[in-house]
Nucleic acid binder design. Structure first.
Lengths: 224, 224
DNA sequence: AGACCATTCAAGTAGACGTTTGAATGGTCG
DNA sequence: CGACCATTCAAACGTCTACTTGAATGGTCT
């Protein structure tokens, strides 16, 4: 096998391809999206992606086999987590690429998220610029474990299964304040629901265009 | 199908996954690596990746089907090119991820490239900082079509199949100058050969750690 | 030690994918 | 028009993959 050999070149690129292929199955893509929010046990993950525990374990191990996720044992539970920030980088690059180039994606996104024309959106730069102001309130609409793992400084936690508690939270917020809700990312429904509920109450509410992983990756401040 | 529906969520992530899967086959990964240097006809690409024209066409169309590559007709030849810079972004992210996390990759790379311990390496920042100096000479060791499609300003073109011409080129270079060679990227053998040849002639020669796509992506100046 | 639980393994099925081979298409040029 | 050429299609092969089911492993807690 000489240097620059065809067979070993093919093998090398098969190696690169195994990484892409690991992200190339829908359920594993969902897993990666969830894990970019924080670690999960097998059972929790199975619930998140709506699959059997056996199949979820199978996929998690497939990701572990190529080094994309790492494990941690606690009691008799195994916690899976991202092995590196670069996994999130690659996943976001793939997702952005799909959004830009795959022409069926808009339809798929609309089928899942519904039409979003009624939702006002604000981007991360805007929020970061206005964070010092007193007239905006940031709402973290993710499960509380994810809020605890890191959130935008000063954000209030309103978990998605406790959206009805928004009533109480509203009492603490000045009617003049603009409310900005965020959740897991652009393909997450939680913030949409919060914004719609708030808008129906006559509040000025907008959705942050991106979620925690994107915020963190862009160098936004994070509080734990 | 309610908003936030399980089936449509799965379909959406299957959509994302088709993009990753498109990069998840070794031969297609090679195609993407080559196309990030510039457009190719089907036949040229078949030669680059060592596959039959039929199979190459098949893979190119698979990439086109998900929007990653675009085509252009000229005479009776079809030229394929990257559909967007984001394809290169995603590919580089995948490749970097594989390099960091896939523990078999070092062996695969060594099998293809050989041991590189004898090669001195310099990174893009260093080169960019020293480009104004007179004491470095940059060598572009890629096929001339790729050089023409864009190269580091001031670089001399020495195509890989004309490495024997280095003798003449050397005559024009002061013996004190440091020579820096680059080619397609970190997994490309061309620059290695040039550096070894130059080193054997007693020249101070180093290899740029990255290639044209990475240089361009990092915002380095490009001349056409 | 024994019961219990989360996780993993193993076997099996249906479907998708990469590659080859040989024929068909759709364009150019004499 | 007809010969020619690059490219694409279609069929077929073996291989791999996702998911299901049911059993086995390897921990923890009483």
């Amino acid at each position: 096998m000489a240097r620059g050999d065809r067979a070993s070149k093919d093998a090398l690129f098969d190696g690169f391809a195994t990484i892409a292929a690991a992200l190339g199955a829908g359920r594993r893509a969902e897993i990666v999206e969830v894990l970019s929010q924080g670690e999960r046990t097998v059972e929790e993950m199975a619930g998140e992606i709506g699959q059997s525990v056996a199949n979820t374990s199978h996929h998690l191990r497939a990701l572990a086999r190529v080094g994309l996720v790492a494990t941690r044992r606690e009691g008799n539970r195994v916690h899976y987590r991202m092995a590196s920030d670069r996994v999130t980088d690659a996943w976001l690059a793939i997702r952005a690429l799909a959004a830009e180039r795959l022409d069926t994606l808009d339809d798929l996104a609309e089928a899942y998220l519904g039409l979003r024309d009624d939702l006002d959106v604000v981007d991360s730069q805007d929020v970061q610029r206005r964070m010092a102001d007193r007239d905006i309130v940031i709402l973290d609409v993710r499960p509380s474990a994810e809020y605890r793992a890191g959130h935008i400084p000063g954000a209030l936690s309103v978990p998605p299964d406790e959206l009805h508690r928004l009533d109480q939270v509203l009492g603490q917020i000045s009617p003049d304040a603009e409310i900005i809700a965020y959740c897991r990312g652009p393909y997450c429904v939680y913030a949409d629901e919060a914004v719609r509920w708030l808008a129906s109450r006559g509040r000025m509410a907008r959705r942050l265009s991106e979620g925690m992983p994107e915020w963190r990756r862009a160098g936004g401040p994070v509080e734990v």
